[in-house]
């Protein structure tokens, strides 16, 4: 196994997985639903159907656009795909406190949104 200075590994869903210093997965392919549940638990979140809808949508966003969305594009994208009533920051904040774009990206196994201030 490669060992670099900034290489942290973590036991997630029974596997050793490379993560960065903030706990984001280093490799997209390491993600699984079990890994998502472990990360969510660390963030104090129990995943429901509503969470999964957003997580799957985030992964679709990343595969389409090659970036993790900041808050505003995420809200818009949710509006397009999950319905207008869910397209607001309060709804997303309730699911993924305290910072929906960051926390949901982490659970979805994506890189930290670079442009998230």
């Amino acid at each position: 196994m490669k060992k670099g200075k900034q290489h942290n590994t973590k036991q997630l869903a029974g596997k050793n997985i490379d993560v960065d210093k903030e706990g984001y997965l280093r490799h997209l392919d390491d993600w699984s639903e079990g890994v998502a549940e472990c990360i969510a638990q660390e963030e104090g979140i129990i995943l429901t159907q509503d969470h999964w809808a957003v997580i799957n949508l985030l992964r679709e966003f990343y595969h389409t656009f090659d970036v993790s969305p900041a808050m505003r594009p995420l809200v818009k994208y949710v509006g397009i795909h999950l319905g207008k009533e869910k397209a607001n920051s309060i709804y997303l904040l309730t699911l993924f406190p305290p910072s929906p774009a960051r926390i949901a990206s982490k659970i979805a196994g994506l890189p930290r949104p670079a442009n998230c201030l």
Partner: peptide, 12 residues
């Protein structure tokens, strides 16, 4: 993919 990132601009 630069073109793919550009296609996200309307969402921003």
């Amino acid at each position: 993919n630069i073109a793919r990132i550009l296609s996200a601009l309307p969402l921003y």
